[in-house]
Design a binder for these strands. Structure first.
Lengths: 208, 208
DNA sequence: CTTTTATGAATGAAGG
DNA sequence: CCTTCATTCATAAAAG
């Protein structure tokens, strides 16, 4: 449902925060109007969710939320009449809450999740759904690798027109402000990128 | 369900905007962290909604109002004042020429186009249309995977007189960690709101 | 217009 | 770490 995610993400982008000097410190600001817009958008979203849930409730008196989630899966429950255990998927899929936590930890810059750290994180995520340390480990590995690749792909424009004298700022490097992967937009419009997943919006920070 | 609204309210509350004096004018401010939190929470919320919609769709096989309503809901009162919707997600579609070239390269047997190779190919395809290295990479990944699957499906192996739907991979390594079963499924927590992993739910429900 | 199919893209996991 | 693979999701294109 991209109407949800995309619109919402766009809202976040829409409310482009300005910058003002606050006694020597520059801070991001939002105008009242922007805040109001954001608030409205969130309210609308909430309303839709409410309707959805209500709708859903009225349709599923059995309260089998989780069990019915196989909306797009390709196998149907009828394929094993004899009782052969196929036991559908096994691949771990982080829940929304787990993802949120993982993203937060990832962004905290505490990279290199040590073994101990992995255990802690796993423990924290456990109450939010089935998970193992391996899952957490893999997630961080993948997250980091893909984040890096995105950065790299997003900057084919490695031209430093003014930095001819090779300034010694190796650690600073080219901190990409936004995560725009080299996505093509057939309609020649590059006004917005293809944010598609919730985690996609995570690359906006510039910390290490 | 009230989790939706509550979460949202929490978001709004969590990001309590501060006030600073901007040259005599007081404006609301948000720290980077707050902005990030807001963005992430919205993203998570969107993800949840998405799941909800999918869930709902899967439950309403008779395509009731929900599908149509939300499918065509343009509830964006703030991003495009002109009524013109921002071009959303659009995926790359190879042109005929690009496809031809890609197929040719693929048939040359270069199974694994290295990074460098990808660049070359991309450069070659660029004049024929919008394309990125990622597109090329994905194309080869998919091409190979599907080619393999086709072959596998076409070859029922040595002896498999029956089972047409059971095309399970021979190398089905179920190397799931031992703690795979450590799941806390029906935790009645508001945050989890019944969105468990597909596998988790299937495991506990064991199909209906 | 609705349903189905083909395929681009995302991502968890394995290998090296 | 980095690369590769397998599976799944989403959507443009095709079929009805």
């Amino acid at each position: 449902m991209e109407w949800g995610k995309q619109n919402i993400v766009q809202v976040a982008d829409e409310v482009n925060i300005g910058v003002v000097n606050n006694g020597g410190v520059f801070v991001k600001v939002m105008t009242d109007e922007q805040i109001e817009i954001l608030r409205k958008q969130i309210a609308v979203h909430a309303a839709i969710c409410e309707q959805l849930v209500h709708l859903h409730k009225s349709l599923t008196l059995q309260h089998d939320l989780a069990g019915a989630r196989f909306g797009n899966l390709y196998y149907d429950p009828l394929m094993t009449p004899g009782g052969h255990r196929i036991t559908g998927r096994q691949r771990w899929t982080p829940t929304a809450v787990q993802l949120q936590i993982l993203e937060r930890i990832f962004d905290q810059g505490n990279g290199t999740p040590s073994k101990q750290k992995i255990k802690e994180i796993t423990s924290e995520l456990c109450p939010h759904g089935q998970i193992s340390e391996t899952n957490v480990y893999n997630w961080f590995q993948n997250r980091r690798a893909r984040s890096k690749r995105k950065q790299q792909a997003a900057t084919p424009n490695t031209a430093e027109p003014e930095v001819e004298t090779n300034v010694e700022s190796p650690n600073k490097k080219t901190t990409i402000p936004e995560d725009f992967q080299t996505q093509h937009v057939p309609s020649s419009r590059v006004e917005d990128l293809g944010f598609k997943n919730p985690e996609a919006s995570s690359a906006m920070n510039s910390v290490d």
